[in-house]
Design a binder for these strands. Structure first.
Length: 493
RNA sequence: GCCGUCAUCGUCUAGCGGUUUAGGACAUCGCCCUCUCAAGGCGGAGAUCACGGGUUCAAAUCCCGUUGGCGGCGCCA
């Protein structure tokens, strides 16, 4: 058995998309599962849209996700390098193979103008035929070619696609898929400027780089017969093909910007963990027999297999991703969450915001709020009141707990007396505080809630928050009393 | 228009001819736990398995057709 070699071959024309990550992930998992190689190749032959910054963003995203490659940019293997197609073009890689096809007469120069080709397609479509190039330049004589070239016309190179019979793709996910050769046209394999087109460059590189499996989105399935013909024209062995179903947005259309975040780095900014993204994406188009939902990366590597990939398109569900993110956060220790949070700040503009925060208090606060955290971003609003110079009182909380007819009298007593008593409490531990509050309620013959709630709002400004007594313990006696007094002045004078 | 492809709860899916009154997860609803909010536990609701024909003793599962969605049809990848 040949060692498995797979690749992820993005074109750097934008951010790394959720769908792209899924493709990369499946290839990476398959490589890990099979103890094979995972290669990153940059398909930058679209000179108009490809940018260096996109390349960098893609690489950064891959690194962040931990989808590291065995070969590719920064990890070149002399045998296969370079891994950028435009660099390969400069090395004459594609020209060599175009020339080979030209001499074999399985490719030819075409001088038809873009407009002329467009006309042909329109005409064909009007006649209810598939729009294709009509082969005008298929049989130009040497003289005709010479003449055109002397006129300064730059030809494109077209592949002579067989026009009879069928070609059968044995897809690992979809089974046999038949294509009528007649429906395929003589597609361009090299543009007039000498740059190869995708369908050609892809085949040449996959073959030279000795890819054993091509695992990609099924938006490429119609390209596959064309690519197979090129393999055949060279006499190269075909790799195995596997086309995964696409990821759609909530309206059933292909996932795009209008469905919210699509760039994976945006999810980083939003406070998602890479484990959650990877786990979620693995579930989109792949499953285990027992429908397991939560996987560690190790489990994913162990269990992933192409034959358990589904063939129907999946809708991206942000709610499930969010749930999974919470699960992943809960599976980490509070200290790990703290470290992830600190690290996360680098990717946001919140670093200044927490500059004055006492990091030890932060750590303790995260312990208290741990299982409430769904994204790292949540931490900000979950614990910010610990660090506020001035408590930001929530209007409805104040109304309900301090000012309503039902609670104002008891709230005033609780706060007034607690301000004094808590100052003198010798033991300010959560346990002692709870005992204090319960004893106080008993003493005044009021419900415990009538003690707990005012205290909570007084120190935090809100009705929701961490366990009250643990929260007070973190504040300590001085800060607690200070906040209670402030609340008293503000709302009970 | 042509070609391809897909079709099970709102969503992701299990299911690969009988063990299915179709299982799990998210979301949703209720109860419990509880100092609030969560988390957790328990439970409910939710799918005539797109539709119509076959094949078979037996079909969500196999075949054909219809419909619908998606994808491709570039000197984009």
């Amino acid at each position: 058995m040949r060692k498995v070699r797979v690749r992820f071959a993005p074109s750097p024309t934008g951010d790394l998309h959720i769908g792209g990550v899924r493709t990369a992930l499946f290839n990476w998992l398959f490589a890990k599962n099979q103890k094979g190689d995972f290669v990153l190749r940059v398909e930058d032959t679209d000179e108009v849209r490809s940018t260096e910054s996109s390349t960098q963003v893609i690489i950064e995203a891959m690194n962040w996700l931990g989808l590291t490659w065995d070969e590719g940019p920064g990890k070149e293997l002399e045998k296969y390098a370079p891994y950028y197609q435009m660099q390969r073009k400069e090395h004459g890689v594609y020209q060599k193979y175009v020339d080979e096809l030209l001499t074999k007469d399985t490719a030819y120069k075409c001088f038809c103008s873009a407009q002329a080709v467009e006309e042909m397609r329109k005409k064909a479509q009007a006649n209810k035929l598939p729009p294709k190039y009509d082969g005008t330049c298929r049989n130009l004589t040497c003289e005709q070619i010479k003449q055109k070239e002397q006129q300064g016309l730059k030809p494109v190179i077209r592949f002579k696609t067989p026009q009879d019979g069928k070609i059968i793709l044995k897809d690992l996910i979809r089974g046999e898929v038949e294509f009528d050769n007649m429906l395929l046209d003589d597609f361009v394999i090299m543009k007039a400027n000498g740059v190869p087109t995708y369908n050609f460059a892809c085949v040449v590189d996959d073959s030279l780089m000795e890819m054993t499996h091509i695992l990609r989105g099924d938006d490429h399935i119609s390209n596959t017969p064309r690519q197979m013909h090129i393999y055949k024209a060279f006499g190269w062995t075909l790799p195995e093909f596997a086309h995964t179903a696409m990821i759609l947005g909530s309206d059933g259309a292909r996932l795009s910007k209008r469905h919210g975040h699509t760039s994976v780095l945006e999810y980083r900014t939003e406070g998602y963990l890479k484990e959650a993204i990877l786990n979620y994406l693995a579930l989109l188009g792949w499953s285990t027999q027992d429908s397991q939902q939560i996987f560690t990366l190790e489990e994913l590597k162990q269990k992933f297999s192409i034959d358990r990939c589904g063939s129907s398109a999946a809708t991206f569900d942000p709610a499930k991703l969010l749930w999974l993110n919470g699960e992943k956060i809960r599976s980490k220790t509070p200290l790990e969450v703290y470290e992830l949070f600190i690290d996360w700040l680098k990717y946001t503009d919140n670093e200044n915001l927490i500059r004055g925060w006492d990091k030890e208090v932060l750590k303790k606060a995260i312990v208290l709020e741990h299982d409430k955290i769904k994204t790292l971003k949540d931490i900000l609003s979950l614990v910010d009141f610990f660090f506020a110079e001035e408590v930001n009182y929530d209007g409805s909380a104040v109304e309900k707990v301090f000012l309503s007819e039902k609670s104002k009298d008891s709230a005033k007593i609780v706060l007034t007396e607690s301000a004094i008593r808590l100052k003198n409490l010798s033991n300010f531990s959560a346990e002692a505080l709870e005992k204090y509050a319960r004893d106080f309620a008993a003493e005044k013959n009021i419900k415990t809630g009538q003690v707990f709630h005012p205290l909570r709002v007084a120190v935090s400004g809100r009705t929701q928050g961490p366990s009250l007594f643990h929260m007070l313990e973190i504040f300590g006696s001085d800060e607690t009393v200070k906040r209670i007094k402030e609340a008293l002045i503000k709302f009970f004078n």
